[in-house]
Design a protein around this nucleic acid. Structure first.
Lengths: 212, 212
DNA sequence: GTCTATATAAGGATAGAC
DNA sequence: GTCTATCCTTATATAGAC
């Protein structure tokens, strides 16, 4: 049981490497030859295991999204179970799992960039895929937010949640100009990001509401 | 003086088409063959006018960024000249030119997606290019925001402006899930986006400040 | 400044042996 | 399930005529 990557199956090695290379060079920019060479597997293995390059791309998404969905729904349920559940609690359930996935061992950091890139690619096929996997999760959150912001019209709430999603996506992909300083650990930098995002978006969501 | 595209020079036609195709398929995904074919110019023309594919990409950026920078600085100066300049005024100067460029005739809409994609590509070369072109504009805005939010620590302000930039980038690229309804014109949808962004981010920036 | 033609490389995918 | 070898397409770039 060494830490050598050779312990993982060909299939898993391909997925891990593809995630990193897609994040770095894009779906079109990373070739299957780069992927299979870096994963130290044969070129033909991709077609054998995933059928095509598109099949590989889809599997890269599915593997991480299943886990993220699970965590978000669990955190939301935990928040709602609390007697005095606040807007900040629900925002935390939405934001924290996404940002924490971006600091788990290696792959997660790559994946969030892949995800952000998928948005940028504006590919309708991928958007539909994401909507199918994320749709019900988002709806649960909309319900929770609506309960905590009773003074807000439904359409107004949708506009604002869209802005929250934007700020989160940007932060997940580490687009921002704020560089982590040497003396701050990656872990606490991530915590600060989460804290600032929650504080900012909570205020934005409450804008114009008497108190909430 | 017909509206035919053939009135534009080869160089301009390439730039216009490249902008649209880069937005749609990414820098790696859009080939020079697609570009020259759609622009109805010869394949070799790209290398003649821009040296290489990378040269073309850079020129696509420069053309729009110069104009956006100019507009933002002009709007900021106009806002600051007002006797009672509000936080919302400065946010408007920052946000509106960016979103308005995304609804001018055809090309602008494509460009903002190109810009968002450049962030996603995470290419250090492009980031440096953007920082060189945007840097001084952002610094001007930081100064203006700092004056309007005197209670906010400088580091806190940077965090929050980073979130503003994220929400704006997301909105510019039209990533969001809010679809414009048929009966709403593109123009007024854009205005609503601007209004919501300003309201949300103003509240977020003010979070925790006594009044401001 | 624009064309044709082509050099040269890299891409995705598959057939068939093992 | 993994390999080699190869097909076929597409890519960027350039040479040289006009």
């Amino acid at each position: 049981m060494t830490a050598s990557t050779s312990n993982f199956s060909t299939r898993e090695r391909i997925l891990g490497v593809a995630e990193v290379l897609f994040a770095r060079h894009g779906f079109a920019g990373a070739s299957l030859r780069q992927v299979t060479s870096a994963a130290k597997v044969n070129l033909a293995a991709v077609n054998y295991h995933f059928g095509s390059k598109d099949g590989l791309i889809e599997e890269v998404f599915r593997r991480r999204l299943d886990e993220l969905n699970r965590q978000r729904l669990a955190s939301l349920a935990a928040a709602l179970a609390r007697p005095a559940c606040t807007l900040e609690d629900v925002l935390d359930a939405f934001i924290r799992p996404a940002l924490e996935q971006s600091m788990d061992s290696a792959g997660g950091a790559a994946f969030v960039r892949v995800l952000a890139r998928a948005y940028a690619e504006h590919d309708e096929r991928l958007r539909r895929f994401l909507a199918d996997n994320y749709g019900h999760v988002l709806r649960e959150f909309v319900i929770a937010f609506a309960r905590l912001l009773p003074g807000l019209a439904r359409e107004e709430l949708h506009w604002r949640l869209d802005i929250v999603a934007g700020a989160l996506t940007y932060a997940m992909a580490d687009f921002g100009m704020i560089k982590r300083r040497q003396e701050v650990s990656e872990h606490s930098h991530r915590d600060m990001t989460i804290r600032h995002l929650i504080q900012f978006t909570a205020a934005g969501l409450r804008a114009g509401c008497a108190h909430a």
